[in-house]
């Protein structure tokens, strides 16, 4: 079985994001970029499935310009066997990303596609679900545990009410939540080895191009700021203040 993992190049989660003064978006010039944290978890899970003998090949794919090859190389250094960059410049909305991944799925015929539940830039949380819809296959979103059993996977999902378990026939799309695993650190020799691993480039047009129906994004603004409030002297004053405000 092949596993296809999607990774997105995003502003590193430790960066303090600033909205551009002209409202056209957030500042990305000179900002540290990384693999979307949920995608790193997706790749780690794929590697663990392969290491447990349940998959033969792990493919990482990203859509973007040359720049995202840096994140694909990191993915190869973590242990992916090969990488595909879908060449496209500029932002792409979830329906188009899902359509491009469907194109990759038709080429590679993976038994499992693992994606992060959301990217920490646009916070859409849509692509995996849309891919599963277009593909007509099951989805198991927000996974905190994946158990493979022949032609199916039993997935524990982190939902608001607790942990939900579903069984999906393969092939299927799984999206990852934080609790699924802790991604490995990349070692220097692996970075060297990754340079020799294959990285193919496929134009987006070869996968059917954009899906259209894009939402129009307008102005970006910083969120309303919270102001510093009052200080209290001790626990008794805190309790009194909370009671006074009707909160206790």
């Amino acid at each position: 079985m092949k596993i296809l993992v999607g990774i997105k190049r995003v502003v590193d989660y430790n960066v303090r994001v600033r909205v551009r003064s002209d409202g056209s978006g957030v500042e990305t010039d000179g900002v540290k970029m990384s693999i979307n944290p949920f995608d790193e978890i997706a790749l780690e899970e794929a590697l663990r499935i392969k290491e447990a003998g349940n998959a033969e090949e792990v493919i990482v794919a990203s859509i973007g310009s040359n720049a995202c090859e840096q994140q694909l190389r990191t993915g190869l250094a973590m242990g992916a066997d090969r990488a595909i960059r879908v060449d496209h410049d500029g932002p792409l909305q979830p329906l188009s990303v899902a359509k491009a991944f469907l194109g990759l799925v038709e080429r590679e015929e993976p038994g499992l596609v693992i994606l992060g539940k959301q990217a920490i830039d646009d916070d859409n949380n849509q692509t995996g679900q849309m891919l599963a819809a277009l593909w007509g296959r099951p989805q198991a979103t927000f996974a905190s545990k994946i158990v493979l059993d022949g032609g199916s996977a039993t997935v524990t999902r982190e939902v608001d009410a607790g942990l939900e378990t579903i069984t999906v026939d393969l092939p299927a799309v799984v999206t990852t939540d934080l609790r699924l695993n802790e991604p490995r650190f990349v070692k220097l020799p692996d970075i060297m080895k990754a340079k020799r691993k294959p990285l193919d480039v496929v134009p987006l047009a070869d996968l059917g191009g954009e899906a259209g129906h894009d939402l129009a994004y307008g102005n970006f603004a910083p969120p309303p700021k919270r102001e510093r409030g009052i200080m209290v002297e001790d626990t008794a004053a805190l309790v009194a203040e909370l009671k006074n405000r009707g909160l206790l």
């Binding site: 909305q93 979830p94 329906l95 899902a98 916070d123 859409n124 949380n125 849509q126 692509t127 679900q129 849309m130 891919l131 599963a132 819809a133 277009l134 989805q139 979103t141 927000f142 999902r157 982190e158 939902v159 608001d160 899906a211 129906h213 894009d214 939402l215």
Partner: peptide
């Protein structure tokens, strides 16, 4: 936009052939 809505609605949007507004 609970885990329920986030799970179900993007799949419905794709079936309707449209992008979706989250949150």
């Amino acid at each position: 936009s609970s885990t329920f809505g986030k799970d179900v609605l993007p799949r419905a949007a794709a079936l309707l052939g449209v992008n979706m507004v989250s949150d």
